[in-house]
Design a protein around this nucleic acid. Structure first.
Lengths: 194, 194
DNA sequence: GTCTATAGATAGATAGAC
DNA sequence: GTCTATCTATCTATAGAC
């Protein structure tokens, strides 16, 4: 949480913050370096000093939350009981979305970010790990659809202004319950499958 | 379904088809009129003869499926029994997504299309009507989150290549069942598919 | 670290010939 | 309906002064 300490990191962070905000609003392709520079009150050249391309900004924005999620998945995979695995995974996923509402979730589904996304090694496997952790041996077509709906739904919740009135704690609790219901696990009695 | 009959409509339709494909791939902002023109083998000027701006193309692409969905909602609102209302609404919504997988769903959540989207009168109310039809008097916070997850999930399913192996009929059946489960309606007894 | 200046490419859009 | 030609604006990116 305490990042803007070093003089170099401060300017870099300002670029990242402004970029994330603008990307969420106009999309990656719809955001120019000009706009980013203007928002933080500097010129394009100043931005280019921190990042050599726009894609590098996108990658930097995505790498952090993806790696954080990756670490949660590491923990989840160490769990032996399936119930706990689903629980830990779902919580980590929800936390990743809530960590930056209207930001990261937006980027994940931005076509302009797709290229940068593919180059991040972490991302390539995260999807498969999530599916494996949440579905386990349940791989019927309905399970797969439920998984896709859950992922899309979580991203939507992260982006939508429709739920802005809900605070993070409340939203987290509800999302985990709804997610469990969607996956067909009973959260009341400790995540049991139907 | 039979549209490309008149000579004028044919060229127009070619532009729409190419645009939808490219928008789905690169996003609206990431797609230039140059790219659209190149794909159908004409020049930019030829595209400008059909549509005066890029936004007009976006609006044309969105208006049709949105109006179709609107008509389904008209029907749903005439239903007196709540069970039937949810049933008809959910089916119409799923059909709207499946009508153009990887197309319309993509556009709905594209930041570059947001402006054009707001100008379509039909869209402004569709969201509220959907919520009212699907939730009815159930408006707890969990209900609202479930609704948001459902909408985002459906869009995701429409976009995702992850479910491309499922044919429309299968996907439709599963989506309606998953949607019913998410909304907390008992599909076995009440909401029956087809 | 930030600036000015500028290069080179491409964007959206228009005019007018065919 | 489609073309060539062209306009203006903006884009990414670089070079070099401060």
């Amino acid at each position: 949480m305490a990042k803007p300490s070093s003089p170099r990191g401060a300017a870099r962070q300002r670029v990242l913050d402004a970029s994330l905000e603008l990307f969420a609003l106009h999309g990656v392709s719809g955001t120019s370096l000009q706009m980013i520079a203007a928002r933080i009150g500097v010129t394009k050249a100043a931005v280019y000093f921190q990042f050599r391309t726009k894609e590098e900004i996108v990658a930097a924005l995505l790498e952090e939350p993806l790696c954080a999620l990756g670490r949660v998945l590491d923990d989840a995979e160490r769990e032996t009981r399936r119930v706990r695995r689903v629980e830990v995974t779902l919580q980590g996923l929800v936390d990743a979305v809530l960590a930056n509402r209207r930001g990261t979730a937006m980027l994940i589904r931005d076509p302009g970010a797709a290229l940068a996304l593919k180059q991040i090694e972490a991302f390539t496997v995260v999807g498969e790990r999530l599916e494996s952790l949440l579905l386990g041996s349940r791989t019927t077509r309905e399970d797969r659809v439920s998984f896709a709906v859950l992922m899309g739904g979580l991203m939507q919740v992260g982006v939508s202004p429709y739920l802005e009135d809900l605070d993070d704690v409340t939203l987290r609790r509800i999302l985990i319950r709804v997610g469990g219901r969607l996956l067909g696990v009973d959260d009341e009695a400790g995540v049991r499958q139907n």
